[in-house]
Design a protein around this nucleic acid. Structure first.
Lengths: 128, 128
DNA sequence: TGCTATGTTCGACTCAAGTCGTACTGAGTG
DNA sequence: CACTCAGTACGACTTGAGTCGAACATAGCA
């Protein structure tokens, strides 16, 4: 594992290479249009913080469906939160048949807001 | 000016030494109790982002009154926002006679969320 | 004593966000 | 074709945040 920050010993957060031919991403802001206010607002919700953190720390394959997260909420709520993350520029979503899979736009966010994703990865959810 | 981060050339953001005898701070969370969700929510408002950024970049004396910011809002709105910043653990406020002066808890925030204040300092307000 | 200046407190209003149920869509499968 | 499964779309509800005006509090000063 290549560490994300050389100083600490935390596991790496690494952008996975994108396979060549993929379904096009759902509508999302361009890198230059990602706004700090919007990103912070999107990340101020504990559920979305959990989603992004889990994507950062536990991603195995290229991207993951809503169901992979094991969130105990109705589907309509999940749609809401995943849409918020995508429209803020935090995640990218692609349609694979029926499934809509998400991953974090690591390179884009690192370029725009260096260090931000480390804070998310280090976050600990509030107990109970 | 000692740079906050050695790599870039941005002006320093430095915690100023606290004079020995000061009025006690208004109620605020302890360092360990500062929550990322809360901080991000507090910073997701453009006006508060402006306040913190201005404190980081233009602070000259130890701390500043509400009026120093030159914000064109009624006083009750300012009270609301400064309280939100203080209760999130971002700023510290002290009462000097009639005035309530604020400064950013730089050391505390750096310890808890390294890099976060750099993002605020680098932020550019939306035009118009 | 009164005036001014700084800022709080309260309550009202508006609006956005989170929450969810229900109905729908569209791909895969038998 | 009928069925299931992943997820969207829509609308309703509730809550909390931002907005502000008006009234109040208090330190300093003339």
């Amino acid at each position: 594992m290549t560490p994300r920050t050389a100083e600490n010993g935390r596991p790496a957060i690494k952008a996975l290479p994108e396979p060549p031919d993929l379904p096009p991403p759902l509508p999302e802001p361009a890198v230059a249009d990602i706004r700090l206010e919007t990103v912070l607002a999107a990340l101020s919700d504990p559920l979305r913080l959990r989603i992004v953190r889990k994507l950062l720390l536990e991603s195995e394959k290229f991207d993951h469906t809503c169901g992979w997260f094991g969130l105990d909420r109705p589907k309509s709520s999940l749609t809401h939160h995943f849409k918020a993350l995508r429209e803020a520029g935090i995640t990218r979503q692609r349609q694979y048949g029926l499934e809509r899979r998400s991953h974090v736009r690591i390179a884009d966010l690192d370029a725009r807001f260096p260090g931000l994703l480390d804070l998310v990865a280090d976050w600990t959810p509030p107990e109970r």
